[in-house]
Amino acid sequence: MNSGVVPISDFNLALSVILVVVAGGISAALRLGLLKALIWGTARTFIQLTFIGYVLKYVFTVNNLWMIFGIVVLMCYVAARAAVKRTPGVPKYPVTLAFWSLLASTVLVGLVVVRVIINPAPWYTARIIIPIFGMILGNSMNGIALSLDRLYGESYARAGEIEALLAFGATPWEAIRGCVVDAMRAGMTPTINSLMVVGLVSLPGMMTGQILGGADPHEAVRYQIVVMLMIAAAVAIGCLLLVGFSYKRLFTADWALRSEILQSRR
């Protein structure tokens, strides 16, 4: 049953460029102005992935705990930066807070997965850790970006309400709790939705990859279940940390709403 990966030869890989030529032809014919971006994107895909292929091969061979840890930290930093770009409405974006939220949630959940659930030998097997942490990060990055965007969006929209509650003597937490709840829900809803439809609407990329790689579908499913649940946990923890750290930044030291929240949103 386990036939392994069907390899793609260099020649066949080069043939895949035909697919881009089709897309480029459509772009040229309809003057979409996307041709340059398409060529550049194709080149980057080849270069970046080839590069990553060599890096991963090296990292998997060396399998040094500290090197893996460094890579995880780097991944968290890049994810925190990427989350910034998805929330243009957040002034003075808390990149550091996003980084720490991602790092804490990813490491916490990731360690449970690799030490308790999968438990390879040694536990810090790069071949397991890096893809697992990557999947956690990719999802919690989206989650925290959504929840932070919603936190600020709600605060701007409901500034009058927040201030009215403050005027009654509410603490910042009491005044903003409604917005925090909405922000958390916004961050976690996509993950929960995907728990509902997984396998019915879409076959997740990881499971597909394992099956293409020749794994028994039953084994692939087991991995996928673990992955789905760890993503749900990591998104929840990440959103909670970031929103928990961030809501205070909407207030002054004297528990008043910051003036920019009361103004128009650029």
Binding site: G160, E161, E163, A164, L166, A167, F168, G169, A170, T171, D254, W255, A256
Partner: peptide, 19 residues
């Protein structure tokens, strides 16, 4: 505390806030 102060000296905005 800000909370105590505002509970005692209460501001009512011109534009009414409805929850």
């Amino acid at each position: 505390t800000p909370s105590r102060w505002r509970r005692t000296v209460h501001y009512l905005a011109q534009k009414p806030v409805i929850f």
